[in-house]
Amino acid sequence: MHTTALVLFSGGQDSTTCLAQALSKYERVETLGFDYGQRHHIEMDTRRVVLANLRERFPQWAPHMGEDHVLTLAALQQLGGSSLTDEVAFAMQADGLPNTFVPGRNLLFLTLAGALAYRRGLQVIVTGVCETDFSGYPDCRDDTMKAMQIALSLGLERRLLIETPLMWIDKADTWALAHSLGGQALVDLIIEDTHTCYLGDRVHRNAWGYGCGTCPACELRQRGWARYSARDANASSSP
């Protein structure tokens, strides 16, 4: 039986929802963030706020919250070519992928997460990748996660489970999952404290949280919020 987990935690909506689920499920949960020269570097600050507020507002989870780790990956910025690391406009590439794709990012994230899990004695790696509501990133696919799980388990000579709670749900369902885990209090925390916007906008406050409202990440989060809100309104009005 698995009792410990390492959550890849950026401080965004998805990873915060995954963290809440892990805290509801495992005895000890540690978190891991990556500083890779991302344009939305503000997420490195907001993630600390999210962790602090989770401890304060959800006392039932606080005893399960373990150490937070941050690793640097400057090589991803050195490779360049992505609108997440370079000051270029968001666009589609010739290969059909958006230029927000950072080649190898999730593969590196999971490799380092596996090494950290090995050192910390953690059994499960939790990541918020999704194939239902995503931008076409090949390193977010279920097949990629299964392959990485096998590779890490073989390469580390230790059985590691990669858990992907959001793989088959969309953003509206992610909002709903957060509500089922922590009620309106968790939804409010995600709105106010988490960060998704690729441009790092913490000035414009929307119904779904802070962000420019026009980058791909904001558009996805906004559409999910609209569907979730409409669903919630319909349920409230039903007799």
Rank of each mutant, 00 (worst) to 15 (best):
L97Q: 10
D232S: 13
F101H: 12
L199V: 14
K146W: 02
F58R: 08
I150W: 09
R158V: 09
A185P: 10
R57F: 06
G81T: 14
S153K: 09
A207V: 15
A230R: 14
G66C: 07
P216R: 03
G12D: 01
Y228D: 03
R57L: 15
L71N: 05
N99F: 05
V29I: 09
K171E: 05
T214I: 15
A226M: 12
N53L: 14
Y137A: 01
T100S: 15
C218F: 01
A117M: 07
L51C: 00
H64D: 02
M44K: 10
G213L: 12
S10F: 06
R47H: 02
G182E: 05
L84P: 06
M65Y: 04
Y36S: 03
L220E: 02
V203C: 09
W61K: 01
V70S: 09
C197L: 04
P138C: 04
A233N: 07
Q222K: 15
D170S: 04
S10P: 11
V7N: 03
S24R: 12
D142L: 11
V124H: 00
S236N: 13
L122V: 11
A113P: 05
F58L: 10
H195K: 00
R39I: 12
T100Q: 06
T100A: 09
V126P: 00
S82L: 06
S10G: 08
H204C: 08
P103F: 06
N234F: 11
P98T: 13
H40A: 10
V187Y: 02
T72G: 09
E87V: 14
T4K: 11
D193F: 09
V187N: 10
T3H: 11
H195Y: 02
G155K: 11
K146L: 14
L108F: 04
I42G: 00
V102E: 02
A226F: 01
Q21A: 01
M65I: 15
L73T: 12
S15R: 04
N206S: 10
D173G: 15
V126T: 13
Q222I: 13
M92H: 07
L189T: 08
L23I: 10
R159M: 09
S236A: 15
L79V: 15
E67F: 04
L161F: 01
L84M: 14
L160Q: 02
L160H: 03
R119H: 12
L116C: 07
A5Q: 02
L189C: 03
N206P: 02
A89R: 13
G11C: 08
A91S: 12
A151F: 08
S24T: 15
S10C: 08
R221H: 04
E192I: 06
